[in-house]
Write a protein that binds this DNA or RNA. Structure first.
Length: 857
RNA sequence: GGACGAUUAGCUCAGUUGGCUAGAGCGCUUCCUUGACAUGGAAGAGGCCACAGGUUCAAGUCCUGUAUCGUCCACCA
């Protein structure tokens, strides 16, 4: 240093610093992973955000955590690969583009445009909006290796997807079949079970009369979905239900359709529910479908894929929307006197995750995957080959794996990987390329987005080639994601990893909490309660946003986000900035070198403790604990005490060492400001590869000395308290006298620091001190402090009496414990000794306060 | 209907394997433009640790139950 430092601004101004350093890092390839490096590998793959998405608070949380892990590992000497990329997000993206095109009047339905034209539009959209989120991640400071950025619809990645499909098809894991699936009438596609959200819905339970054929009697059925009755093929009762056994085999006349349908007996019917009679609609209800298979009933489709009624529903209802039809059916049945009653009824209805409309059970030809590697994947988590954190999610995983069902992977969409299967008459061909010969038609469907995402950890690394990257960086170390996608993504990646790499895709999974607003509501676009992270970065700096969030990100607990958090983060950065500024200014005064004093040793001791605490917390993914420790150490130990005390005689090497350690410990959390300060205080180009601090033993810096200094600080606090109690303004210099209980030498040596910390014009240290007259005083563990000058006998008596009462209360508790024989005989020896010491201490303190009080009489 | 989580200061949360006077930030009160920092400093007020039992010398912490809130799973029409 030496040369006159350029003027450092009083307040930290993040904007320029952030831009400057991010550009520098990119230019120098700081984030680029080198597969040929001799260093041990550490890798993370990013949970790929939707390519056309915008950064949310969830992303900020998630990616800050990953960045912290990656940056720390670089400092610990690992060759780090944080592999970024984006997801084509099939149904989400297609839905958004369709909506936009409809709004623009380009089309009513995608069929108006046709596949080719429509896909062109989606690609246009992707070009326009794609990658915004990548720029946003850069603003946040993410240290991803952008040279390896991947997109799930990249040519190479797409090939991986198709290759896996063909392979699983050939192995018999992928099959085509006509099954009941979750159908989204708005998106007009099948969905997986995971994409259906069950929502409690207020509905009705209608009771209808179905007349018995050849009788004036009728049976009563109850339903929540009257419109499906148009497709009824039976009425079912439980075989053991004595009320109805005589009717089994009889027929009823299906109202409105004038069709005779049988009464059947089936175990699936619960006699205790409703009337015990169930209408059976084979084509529009999962349970009914299975019943129909058992009883060989026909499947009458009355609801079309677009949610409108079919011709089979009858001319009165054809072309009505399913919900309009519901009303119409009820109306007609009412007119015919067949509506017996109507009850309010709350039940669960499945909604499409994307289009938010009720799902229709729908019978159709789809592709299904029987999951590979289920036992091995289940066991991997059970036995700890893959660790979940927090552990409780292991149970959720095990439960899902234990009840795993085939995955419907085909989607009736256009945006995605087209299924590599071709048909010609009865022939079927599955392969990477279209088969030779004429007349082959490719399956029109595309694959579920997650069918590409589940290959992410290795498909991004060049698989199926055995690339250097794959060899060096697979398996990855940590995965950071939300627990909401355990089934969608995590579980499937594990199975794919074992199937194609014969190895786990990651060693640890850290599940973040969900970010909610200050009222605890989920952040959503419709509520408008989700702040734009870029606004927050502009206002508080990326470091401030990151740190503020980390401070409140407890392990796997939901996070109530409030902008106040960013303020805390920003203020902390500013505090650090000014501490560095102070050191810079001291350096400029060229203070003489001197041996370590008690304050120096104390801060070095605390520094060692901070290093250990932060390191361990990060090892255990306790990010908030690490952040908290940094906050307390920097603000409390370093700024409030050490820097203040050091104003007596600054010890530049110690100030530098502590600051340097702070910068390195803080760098993963706050990459920009630490890089800036590292370089402006003599650093060597970048802090990113500076060694992660290790606690080192230092002669004299021990717990005993730290405790002595603490007792000194305690005296300072007592002195300030006296000043405050007597309403003496902070700036006024006053006189104190200190009467130590022991260790007089130590306190005498601290006269100068005491004067400074107490803002005193004079501090007398004397073990035999007796005030000339009466003086306000406070008794601490190590000494009694007197404030010379002001005195108010009444107030003083009140204060001392209160203090005496406090001591007595504690003393009573301690003595009660020691009087308890079971405690003395059964408690651990250290616990007993601790109580004895405390008793001794309190007694001495009590005597002194008592004496002071008596002197006032 | 199951499973999991939460309940500690006005608010948001810490509280490690049970053991000093239960902590922090925000907010609140009083004083302070003292040469790092008003995005700051000093000093305060504020808690039946949801409730009821139990284990223990000792429970915010362990066990059982209850209540409230939340999340996930589950095809009763």
């Amino acid at each position: 240093m030496g040369t006159a430092p350029t003027e450092i601004p009083k307040a930290y101004e993040p904007k320029q610093v952030e831009e400057k350093w991010y550009a520098d890092w990119l230019a120098k390839g700081r984030f680029t992973a080198d597969p040929s490096s001799a260093k041990p590998a550490y890798s993370i793959v990013i949970p790929p955000p939707n390519v056309t998405g915008m950064l949310t608070m969830g992303h900020v949380l998630n990616n800050t955590l990953q960045d912290i892990l990656a940056r720390r590992k670089r400092m610990q000497g690992y060759e780090v690969l944080w592999l970024p990329g984006t997801d084509h997000a099939g149904i989400a993206t297609q839905t958004v583009v369709e909506k936009t095109l409809r709004k623009q009047g380009v089309m009513k339905h995608r069929d108006d445009l046709g596949r080719e034209k429509f896909l062109e539009k989606v690609w246009e959209w992707k070009e326009k909006h794609g990658g915004i989120i990548i720029q946003q991640l850069k603003k946040l400071g993410c240290s991803c290796d952008w040279s390896r950025e991947r997109f799930t619809m990249d040519e190479a990645y797409s090939q991986c997807v198709l290759r896996v499909f063909v392979d699983l098809y050939n192995k018999g894991y992928i099959v085509r079949g006509k099954r009941m699936v979750n159908w989204d009438p708005a998106g007009r596609t099948a969905l997986s079970d995971e994409e259906v959200i069950m929502t409690e819905t207020q509905g009705h339970l209608w009771h209808f009369k179905y007349p018995l054929v050849g009788s004036d009697q009728f049976v009563v059925v109850a339903t929540t979905r009257p419109e499906t009755m148009l497709g009824d093929e039976a009425v079912a009762v439980n075989p053991s239900d004595a009320r109805y056994t005589h009717l089994v085999g009889h027929r009823v006349l299906l109202p409105l359709r004038n069709k005779q349908i049988p009464i059947i007996a089936d175990e699936a019917v619960d006699p205790k529910f409703g009337t015990g009679c169930v209408k059976v609609t084979p084509a529009h209800d999962v349970a009914d479908y299975e019943m129909a298979l058992r009883h060989k009933l026909p499947f009458t489709v009355v609801i079309a894929p677009d949610g409108k009624m079919t011709e089979e529903a009858g001319e009165d209802f054809e072309d009505l929307d399913r919900f309009e039809c519901r009303e119409a059916v009820v109306e007609q049945l009412k007119e015919e006197g067949l509506l017996l009653k109507l009850e309010d009824y709350t039940h669960n209805v499945g909604y499409s995750e994307r289009t938010n409309v009720p799902i229709e059970p729908y019978l159709s030809d789809q592709w299904f995957l029987k999951y590979p590697q289920v036992p091995r994947s289940t066991e991997a988590v059970e036995k700890g080959e893959i660790k979940f954190s927090p552990e409780r999610w292991e149970k959720t995983y095990a439960h899902w794996m234990g009840n795993i069902r085939d995955w419907c992977i085909s989607r009736q969409l256009w945006w995605g990987h087209r299924i590599p299967v071709w048909y010609r008459g009865e022939e079927i061909y599955c392969g990477l390329e279209a088969p030779k010969g004429d007349g082959w038609q490719q399956d029109p469907d595309v694959l579920d987005t997650w069918f590409s995402s589940w290959l992410w950890p290795f498909a991004t690394m060049g698989w199926p080639e055995k690339t250097d990257t794959l060899k060096k960086f697979y398996p990855t170390a940590d995965l950071v994601t939300g627990p909401d996608i355990i089934f969608f993504w995590v579980a499937r990646m594990i199975m794919a990893g074992y199937e194609y790499m014969d190895a786990r895709p990651f060693a640890n999974v850290y599940y973040t909490g969900i970010i909610r607003d200050a009222q605890g509501r989920k952040m959503s676009k419709s509520l408008g309660n989700s702040p734009d992270p870029l606004d927050l970065i502009a206002k508080y700096g990326a470091d401030g946003l990151r740190f503020g969030l980390m401070l409140i990100a407890p392990q796997g607990q939901d996070i109530l986000f409030d902008e106040k958090r960013c303020e805390i983060g920003r203020n902390f950065m500013n505090k650090l900035w000014n501490a560095a500024r102070f050191i810079q200014m001291q350096r400029a005064t060229n203070p003489p070198q001197r041996p370590h004093n008690a304050h120096d040793l104390k801060i070095l001791f605390e520094m060692n403790r901070a290093i250990e605490t932060v390191s361990q917390a990060l090892d255990e993914y306790k990010f908030n604990e690490a952040a908290k420790e940094l906050y307390d150490f920097v603000w409390g130990d370093f700024c409030d005490w050490y820097i203040e005390a050091s104003k007596v005689a600054p010890n530049i090497p110690v100030l530098d060492e502590v600051l340097g350690t702070i910068l390195r410990l803080l760098h993963p959390f706050a990459p920009f400001i630490t890089e800036e300060l590292w370089n402006s205080t003599g650093g060597d180009g970048t802090i990113q590869f500076a060694a992660w601090p290790k606690a080192h033993p230092l002669a004299g810096a021990d717990a005993e000395l730290a405790a002595r200094v603490d007792s000194l600080y305690e005296i300072v606090t007592a002195g300030r308290q006296l000043r405050n109690d007597y309403g003496i303004e902070p700036r006024k210099k006053i006189r104190y006298a200190i009467k130590p209980s022991g260790d007089e030498q130590f306190f005498r040596g601290e006269t100068e620091s005491l004067k400074l910390l107490l803002n005193a014009e004079d501090v007398t240290v004397d073990a035999q001190y007796a005030p000339g007259g009466l003086a306000p005083s406070l008794v601490t563990r190590a000494a009694t402090i007197f404030m010379v000058g002001a005195m108010d006998v009444g107030a003083e008596r009140q204060r001392l009496t209160k203090q005496l009462a406090d001591i007595d209360k504690q003393l009573a508790a301690t003595e009660a414990k020691l009087a308890n024989e079971s405690f003395v005989s059964k408690a651990a020896a250290v616990a007993v000794q601790r109580e004895r010491d405390k008793q001794q201490q309190l007694r001495e303190q009590r005597d002194k306060v008592d004496a002071l009080l008596r002197a006032l009489q």
